[in-house]
Each structure stands twice: as structure tokens, then as C-alpha cells.
Simulated assay, not measured.
Amino acid sequence: MKFLLVASFASSLIGFRKPLIIALLERGLEVHVAAPELLDNQIVITELTELGVIPHSISMQRTGINPIADTKALISLYTLMREIEPDYMMGYTIKPVIYGTLAAWLARVPKRFALITGLGFAFTAEDDTKRKHVRAVAQGLYRSALRHCQVVFFQNYDDEALFRQLNIVSSKTRTCVISGSGVDVEEFDVVPFDTQKPLRFLLIARLLGDKGVREYNQAAQQVKKLHPEVQFDLVGGLDANPTSITQGELDEWIKAGTVNFLGRLKDVRPAIQASSVYVLPSYREGTPRTVLEAMAMGRAIITTDAPGCRETVVDGDNGFLVPVKDVDALVQAMLRFIEQPALIAQMGQRARIIAEEKYDVHKVNAHMISEMELE
């Protein structure tokens, strides 16, 4: 039996789906993976082939709406599926879900699954003209594709409810909510932070407005006026997304000394280890992987009361929830940790327990495999 996993980022196959791939292999499936320019990424190829996975490159632009390019993606996926004849197919992120599912249906792949890892640019609350257009197109394409799925997986109940409300997923389609992508609680083990050093906040994200990066910088500016010794680390890179932070903005933040920019990191564990509190002021997520990693390493969390984010924090237990875009509330949450440092270790311990009980990647994958009837 063959299983095809379709991604929009080659590196995500290792960074986010490796435990799932291993779980599929352990059940005797022949696993194929496909992503744009995958065969050009020697590091990812080496790791995949060592596992016994068969890699394929496909034609796909990750962002933007381009009918010609998107048609090429559909044809590329259809051709691949006719060639390898998978028994199961799953796509994750918007274009692999839409074009992967449609191609699988056209190629008569028997079992088709979709993993909605977040709704991104099109579904955040902004109502500018461009976003409205993208939202309308995305809804139509999702609706066309998801009616051909046996199971649609969501990472939070808000996204599932929204898709039902907008009739993107019909009443006839089976859905399942899972606890995000999970986290390897052995790989991301607890590392105590140094209580003798100044408190350090950390944000790891693509540098997008929708991730709350600007709010993080604004909060840092305010807190530093009261506590100049406190540090604000920022990990991530610029992106082609329409809401991306500009290089000029980032340069200004660095020059002002507001944030300590660490760039893109292949391994984020040293940054989490150096931090005291993890912060993600995102406008909307599926389930934020970086929050789960920080929780597993015993870090208290500040995040927004937004879809995907609110699932990870019990307010006042393992961290604090703040309203979306509310810089003042974000500042107040930061000040509570600064003024009551005992909360950091206390909430960090609770975060680790929640990570073990709810977000262990092996539990999450077992749930998915059961729903796909692959046991």
C-alpha cells in the first residue's frame, strides 16, 4: 500500500511531518512525499531516503493566485499520482490541500485526506480589498476540493466551525480535530532557565504582521522604558507573504536595540533554552508549533485569545492570554512576569505537563492514523 504526502515546503516534511512519516512506515506503508523543488534540497533528500521515503518534486508556487501556475500545479500532481498510483493521499497547507485533493480525485486515488494547519492570510479579520478577493477565491477552491475528502483534519475547533458555517465543508464530509502537529517531548525536553540573568522574552515566527511581530516590537519598546535590562529575542526570516515585515522595519528595530534578532534557526532549542517566557501575539493559527515546543521545554507562554492560540494556554495556569492586537495588554502580561518572577517557573512546569498530556506528537499521530483507518 502506498501513501503520498504533499507539502508546499520541502523542509517541512522533516521539520513538521517526520514523526508522522515514521509512523506510516512502521505500519508497512510505502511512503512517497512531494513538494516544490524537493529534489534540489539535498539535505532533506538525504534524510528522507535514509528513512526509506521516496521523494518527488512538483510544480507549485507556495503563495499568490496565478491561474496558469496553479493549473500547472494541478497537472503536475495529477501526472505524479497516475505514475505512482497511491492508495492514500494527504495534503497540508492550502495549495497541497486544494490541488493535491483535486488531482487525487481526478487520478482516482481511493482515499484522500486533508490537514488544515491554519487559515493564514485569507481568513484573518482584516477586510482590505485584496484580502477579500483572496478569501473568496480560497473559499471556492477549498469547497471544490474538500468535498472529495474522506476525512478533513483541523487543528482547532474554531477553524472547523468556520468551515462548517461557510459551507466549505459539507455536512456529508467527516471532520476530525487533532491537537496540532504535536511536539516530540523527548527531543524538546525541559531545560531550566538561568534565574541569575535578566529576564528574556522570545518570539519565533515568520516575520509577518499577522504573527503579531509588530505588536511584539511595540510592547518591547514600552517594557524597555521601565526595565531596560529585559531582553526581547526574535527568531525568524522575512517572507513573500503580503503581510511580511519589511527589511527596513527590521533594520530599524535592530538599530534601536528593541529586539535581539537571531535570524532563521534550524534548531530553535538553544533560543528557547535561553528564554524565560515565550510570546506569540498571532492573529490566528492552526495550532502554533513554536508554542508547543516552548511548553515542552518548560516555558511559560503569552499568546492571544485567538483561534489556535487559545487552545494552548489556560489563562493564569501555564501563561496568559491577551486580546489580538492589544499592545497594552501584552505589555501588562510581560510586566506580571517581570514583577512576579516566581510565576515563570510555576507556569513553565504546568506548560510541560500540558505538552506531555495533550500535545505529545506520538499521541497526535496515533489519533490521525486511527481516523484514516491505517492501524
Rank of each mutant, 00 (worst) to 15 (best):
S12Y: 15
R17C: 14
K18M: 14
L20W: 15
I22E: 14
L24C: 06
L25Q: 05
E26L: 12
L29Q: 02
V31D: 03
A34N: 00
A35E: 00
E37V: 10
D40Y: 13
Q42M: 09
I43F: 13
I45K: 05
T46G: 11
T46L: 13
T46D: 14
E50G: 11
E50S: 09
S57G: 06
I65Q: 04
I65A: 01
I68C: 04
A69H: 12
K72M: 10
S76Y: 09
L77M: 08
M81C: 06
M81E: 00
E83A: 07
D87A: 08
M89L: 08
T93K: 04
K95L: 07
G100D: 00
A103T: 06
W105G: 05
V109I: 13
K111V: 07
L115G: 07
I116H: 03
I116L: 03
L119R: 02
G120A: 06
A122H: 02
T124D: 02
T129P: 00
K132W: 09
K132T: 13
V134Q: 06
Q139Y: 04
Y142S: 02
Y142T: 03
C149K: 04
Q155L: 13
D158F: 11
D158P: 08
E160C: 03
L162K: 03
Q165P: 11
L166G: 11
S171W: 15
S171E: 15
T173M: 06
R174N: 13
R174W: 14
V177T: 15
G182M: 01
V185T: 15
E187K: 15
V191W: 04
P192D: 08
F193A: 08
F193G: 04
P198Y: 15
V213D: 05
V213A: 00
V213F: 02
E215F: 12
Q222I: 14
Q222P: 04
V223G: 07
K224I: 10
K225W: 10
L226C: 07
H227I: 12
P228W: 12
E229V: 12
Q231M: 11
F232A: 02
A240H: 13
N241V: 13
S244R: 01
I245A: 03
T246N: 02
Q247D: 14
G248A: 14
G248C: 14
E249C: 07
L250M: 10
E252C: 14
N260V: 13
L262A: 08
K266E: 14
Q273S: 14
S275H: 09
S276V: 14
V279W: 07
S282A: 06
E285H: 12
G286W: 07
T287L: 10
L292F: 13
E293N: 03
A294P: 08
R299C: 01
R299H: 00
I302T: 11
A306V: 08
C309G: 08
T312V: 13
V314A: 12
V314K: 05
D315A: 12
N318C: 06
G319Y: 09
K325H: 11
D326L: 09
A329T: 10
L335H: 10
L335N: 07
Q340E: 07
Q346E: 10
G348T: 05
A351N: 01
E356A: 08
Y359P: 01
N365R: 00
M372W: 05
M372F: 06
E373G: 01
L374A: 01
E375A: 07
